[in-house]
């Protein structure tokens, strides 16, 4: 099977700091791929190279077998790759609905929308409310609330809802459950499984080993700016995975090839 998203030999340096050191990456159709690694291993930079937020110095990326080079996150989004960044990418003073539809606003039908470019705020609010309810974010009282008035977990929930609602090819989640409560974290996992059942593959970066081992089909272990190995969660334990990513244990030969 051909990977839907593939990268070979990605290199990214920030001055004298090497963030990615000839990194490879494969995501297959319909799978949940977890990416684990120590802090500073280069997970986020790898993700940003795939989503267009960072341009790698060397290396190539293929989407659907075609060589691709995203100059900006907007291009990647146009190609159907939706990302939840660690920083969440929200405008604090704007409302939840404004943030959900940032860069893909719905205009009113007819003359008002076409010539006066008037936004259909009602439709956007209704859609946002539905998506938040799907995620179980019932503690949000007002969909027109400014995002700055929400808690960190609620903001993260909105970012996840936004990605899940609009991603059509690949959804990338960078630490999506870090700030969430028990119930919302569980909902995000259910949502991830739900998205996979719609046939959309997911890249999940997480430090939460129980979550990773529960939902992931394969686990990409990242170490020192490289893919160290790829393991099947059914064949290894959580302590094995932690040992690999911290360098306490050498990864098995077979996993390196994968």
């Amino acid at each position: 099977m051909e990977p839907i998203l593939k990268a070979r030999g990605l290199v990214k340096r920030f001055g004298r700091v090497t963030a990615l050191n000839r990194c490879d990456f494969d995501l297959y159709p319909g799978e949940i791929l977890a990416v684990i690694g120590d802090n500073g291993a280069g997970k986020s930079v790898m993700i940003k190279s795939l989503s267009g937020a960072v341009q790698p110095d060397e290396g190539e990326v293929w989407l659907d077998g075609k060589p691709t080079r995203f100059a900006s996150p907007i291009e990647a989004r146009g190609a159907g790759i939706e990302t939840v960044y660690q920083t969440l990418a929200m405008s604090p003073a704007l409302s939840i609905a404004d943030n959900m539809f940032m860069g893909r606003e719905i205009r009113q039908p007819g003359v008002m929308g076409k010539w006066l470019r008037r936004l259909d705020k009602q439709a956007m609010e209704k859609f946002s409310r539905e998506k938040l309810s799907e995620l179980g974010l019932m503690t949000i009282q007002n969909i027109n609330q400014a995002v700055e008035t929400l808690s960190g977990g609620q903001r993260q929930g909105i970012a996840v809802a936004r990605a899940a609602a609009f991603g059509s090819k690949v959804i990338i989640l960078d630490e999506p459950t870090a700030a969430l409560g028990v119930k919302e974290g569980r909902r995000v996992l259910e949502l991830i499984l739900d998205v996979r059942s719609r046939g959309i593959p997911i890249i999940l970066i997480s430090h939460n080993m129980p979550h990773v081992f529960e939902v992931a089909d394969r686990i990409h272990v990242h170490r020192l700016g490289q893919r160290l190995c790829v393991i099947n969660p059914k064949d290894y334990t959580m302590s094995d995975a932690v040992a690999f990513m911290t360098g306490a244990k050498e990864p098995p030969e077979a996993a390196i090839a994968a």
């Binding site: 996150p73 929200m90 405008s91 003073a93 940032m102 606003e105 470019r117 008037r118």
Partner: peptide, 23 residues
């Protein structure tokens, strides 16, 4: 009431977030 207006606010609020969010 237009997308352009919302983008002006978003850029003034946090340009990096706006860029990542697709502005």
């Amino acid at each position: 009431s237009t997308a352009w207006g919302r983008h002006v606010y978003a850029v003034g609020d946090d340009p990096e977030a706006a860029e990542l969010a697709g502005v």
